[in-house]
Simulated scan of single mutants.
Amino acid sequence: MSPTVYAVRLGLRRGWTEFRQSLTTPGDIIYYLVLGGVFLGVLFFMRNTTVEGTDLSLATLSMPSMIGGLLAFQALGGAAFALAAEREDGTLLRARTVPQGLVGYVAGRILGIALSTLLTLTIILVPSVFLFEDLVTGDLAKWLNLLWVLALGLLATMPIGLIIGAMVKNPRGANTWGIFPTMGLLAISGIFYPITSLAGWLQGISQIFPVYWVGLGTRAALLPEAAVAVELGDSWRRPMTAFVLLAWAVVALLIAPKVLGRTARGETGSKVEARQQEALKRVG
């Protein structure tokens, strides 16, 4: 077995172990349940509002969008924050000192974030199937459509988060350059209301980034065909969704290892200690 494959296996095992531990940690369980509960609560209060131009409730139309938006938020913002935090506490430096350690670290981090994201989506999706009857859930092709959208969405967004986390100096920087911009993209990407209600120039900006396409893909997978009336061009644009997400995934996956490698090579014990002292001052 090659050293790289062995490192990936160890990293994946670490990611799986950390995820399993989170399922037995009260704070993490509360986080999953509260986050899912908040989304379900918002959708429940939207159930009696009908979207103009369709017979669908705003809750039915918004639920798939929120699934896509939450995936992008957790994969991009979560990856950025996690990597920035682990640069600060020295985890990345320790990974660099082990042969192929960085490869294993990245594999474990990707699996851990992917699993926690999918768990949160499941907490929202399963009750929604019973709460909102207009969702299309009896078609296997629709579920397969949802699976490839979620997979490509993770590949398109998570490496971007890792790049941001590698470039910022601390978790606060991850908030500034990762989480807050992602929230801005969610606001203009048709996640909370139809994108056709936005100004044309905002529609153009949103279509550059993967967040819009993840939301469009999840809507195409779970909504009836009548819902396409509120989409741009009255089309689900599945081929374009696959192309854009795949393009983002390829570019991000090519860039992320180089950025992470450069960041890891620049890590030293003195830099980690300085960041830890700075963190202690912020807490104090």
Rank of each mutant, 00 (worst) to 15 (best):
T263V: 11
T49W: 14
R9N: 06
G269A: 15
V214E: 05
F130N: 12
T97A: 15
R9T: 07
A256Q: 09
L12G: 03
Y105C: 07
A107D: 05
I124D: 10
D139R: 14
V230W: 02
K281M: 12
A187H: 11
R96E: 13
V211M: 03
Q276F: 03
V38C: 13
L223S: 04
L232Y: 11
S116M: 14
A249L: 04
S270M: 11
L102S: 02
L146F: 14
P64C: 11
V272H: 12
P99K: 01
L56V: 00
L70A: 07
L223E: 04
V103L: 10
W16M: 14
G101W: 09
L216H: 01
R275W: 13
Q21A: 15
T25V: 01
T60F: 08
T50Q: 09
P3V: 05
L154F: 09
I124W: 02
V168K: 02
P64N: 08
L147H: 06
L162G: 06
D234L: 13
L111S: 03
A199P: 06
Q207Y: 03
T24N: 13
E278A: 15
T268R: 09
K281C: 01
G161R: 15
Y6C: 12
A264Q: 07
L111R: 06
L222D: 08
S128M: 02
E88N: 11
G78S: 02
W16N: 09
E225P: 06
G217A: 02
D134H: 06
T241M: 11
A187P: 04
R219K: 09
A7E: 04
G190A: 02
V106F: 02
Y31L: 09
L121G: 07
L58P: 15
R13Y: 09
L40M: 10
I164G: 01
I255F: 04
S22F: 06
W143Y: 10
A114E: 03
L150W: 05
V98G: 09
T263Q: 08
A242N: 11
I124Q: 08
G184Q: 08
A82N: 04
A72L: 00
Y105D: 00
G53Q: 04
I163F: 03
R14Q: 13
G41F: 14
E86I: 08
V103K: 04
A279I: 07
T91H: 12
L147C: 12
G15K: 01
A114G: 02
V228I: 13
I205A: 05
M66Q: 14
L253Y: 13
P159D: 06
Y32R: 00
S2H: 01
K281D: 10
